[in-house]
Nucleic acid binder design. Structure first.
Lengths: 192, 192
DNA sequence: TTGACAATAGACCGATCTGTCTGTATTGTC
DNA sequence: GACAATACAGACAGATCGGTCTATTGTCAA
């Protein structure tokens, strides 16, 4: 038997929790977590207030959960994107992914950067999620540069992190060309 | 004779307008413009509400004025920092300035990035200020790379913008090492 | 001394925010 | 049919928000 009872008529058949996270994702990413109130999320999710507080306890936790799901999805997406690329080529190929992301219609910068910018309280639960994802990125970059066999792999990996951050921050302000600029430079760096 | 009458006992002798901007600078930069309310600024500036609305009209305009003063100050500071450096060396020297900035006690990222992240309304007056300062940066980078005599100067200039954005965004999340990583890479790029 | 002016203090307004609470409808299981 | 679980609808509370307004104080110039 499935988990428990329940059933709903409206809004297709995903649970409230997922509907809330979907709505939070759309609104928080597009407009910022501080600019969007609980009521907006509820309306967008077509959910009741009690459901939100039942599942998440408070808004901060909803934000953290939204960010966590976003990071988990991003990892999976990146890994799938790179799956067919030989390890030695992945560092550069990753920047193709960044370019595609920056060119996508709804691109509005990096959720991790937004989190650190908007939620200045160091104890905010979303910050821990953000830092965890940062670690994943730095680990991957090191892995990819090692596989590429470049010399000074650690320094190159750190430089690629800077290029990645600059690509998304720059693309948020100036448009997707910044991501291409980053790719151009990454190629140069990995070649020599 | 000076401007007009007035006089105050407390808080030294700068005008209310400047006190308000100073307070706004401290609070907005440290905690974010959406996280800090008018009342916090007034308390920090030891000023009256009417003074704020007399000088700035609304909060959005205070934010824009705060950002404008910050960008004007930054330009002056950077130009002074580079004044003794021959033009051909300025591109790299600029990243020394970035490292010092990222290592400074109160560093909390780039106000321009914060503005674009926090104020998602494209019509917000602070956005125009931010875009103006972005142009100044891109113009300077092109000027410096041309003076450095590197080939492909335009592409290099764009890459340096990415490195700059990555330096400050990365330093905000991970610490000042990111700025050093950016400098390391800028040196490499400008050498070859 | 008087009047203009700049600034202060703070009450007040309506809107919005997060969060709580009550009550009701629907569903699956016994 | 009874019951528990889940979700919905929405009133409500308390705080805070940006912004307006009145009243008062202190300073300069005439």
């Amino acid at each position: 038997m499935p988990k428990k009872g329940r059933r709903r008529a409206k809004s297709s058949d995903i649970g409230v929790r997922d509907r809330l996270l979907d709505a939070a994702d759309r609104l928080f990413y597009r407009e910022g977590v501080r600019a969007v109130g609980i009521d907006r999320v509820l309306a967008e999710a077509d959910a009741a207030k009690a459901s939100l507080y039942q599942h998440f306890g408070c808004k901060d936790q909803l934000v953290a959960s939204y960010l966590e799901r976003k990071t988990v999805d991003a990892r999976a997406q990146i890994e799938a994107y790179l799956a067919d690329t030989p390890p030695s080529q992945r560092a550069l190929k990753f920047f193709d992914w960044v370019v595609e992301w920056a060119e996508s219609k709804d691109f509005r910068g990096c959720p991790l950067q937004h989190t650190v910018t908007e939620l200045t309280d160091a104890a905010h639960p979303a910050r821990a999620i953000a830092y965890g994802q940062r670690e994943w990125f730095t680990d991957r970059f090191l892995e990819w540069t090692m596989a590429a066999g470049v010399k000074d792999a650690k320094a190159v990996a750190r430089a690629l992190v800077v290029l990645f951050d600059g690509a998304v921050a720059g693309a948020e302000m100036d448009g997707p060309q910044r991501a291409k600029d980053a790719r151009w430079m990454a190629k140069k760096l990995l070649a020599g």
